[in-house]
Design a protein around this nucleic acid. Structure first.
Length: 119
DNA sequence: CGTATGACTTTTA
DNA sequence: GTAAAAGCCATAC
């Protein structure tokens, strides 16, 4: 199915994919952590933007949530439901508030391997 | 090239 | 604890 033709377009996306892809299953990370791994904790928005433009099934975008430990969705409810379903399917438990144990599942150990990526 | 928006974060009240 | 405002950078028009 179509492979990703242009993963490395803007460049930023490539790094986001790499970091997110390094997040182990059953674990979650926040946009800020990914942004911080990229070098700037303020680019969290761009991280979300990169994931929004992401159509790569190989990228566990569902493992990326906001700093509140909840799923971020700005009008795309189906997407949030899908994300929660995938996380639950991986073993992530949600509380009554729809939040995950961010303190325990928060993955901040990123190995910036930009070997195969532009750099 | 300039303006507007955005799957966010953080600070301050 | 919640609420509102400012900040940051990239994509889209």
């Amino acid at each position: 199915m179509h492979t990703v033709e242009r993963v490395v377009g803007p460049g930023f996306h490539a790094r986001v994919y790499t970091l997110v892809a390094q997040v182990p299953p059953g674990r979650v990370t926040t946009y800020g952590d990914v942004a911080a791994a990229l070098g700037s904790p303020r680019v969290a928005r761009q991280v979300g933007w990169a994931l929004a433009a992401c159509r790569d099934d190989e990228v566990p975008w569902h493992r990326v949530i906001n700093a509140r430990g909840t799923i971020s969705f700005r009008g795309d409810t189906p997407r949030a439901v899908l994300q929660r379903a995938r996380l639950e399917w991986e073993g992530v438990r949600f509380d009554d508030q729809g939040r995950v144990a961010l303190a325990a599942l928060r993955h901040t150990t990123f190995a910036t391997d930009l070997d195969g990526v532009t750099r």
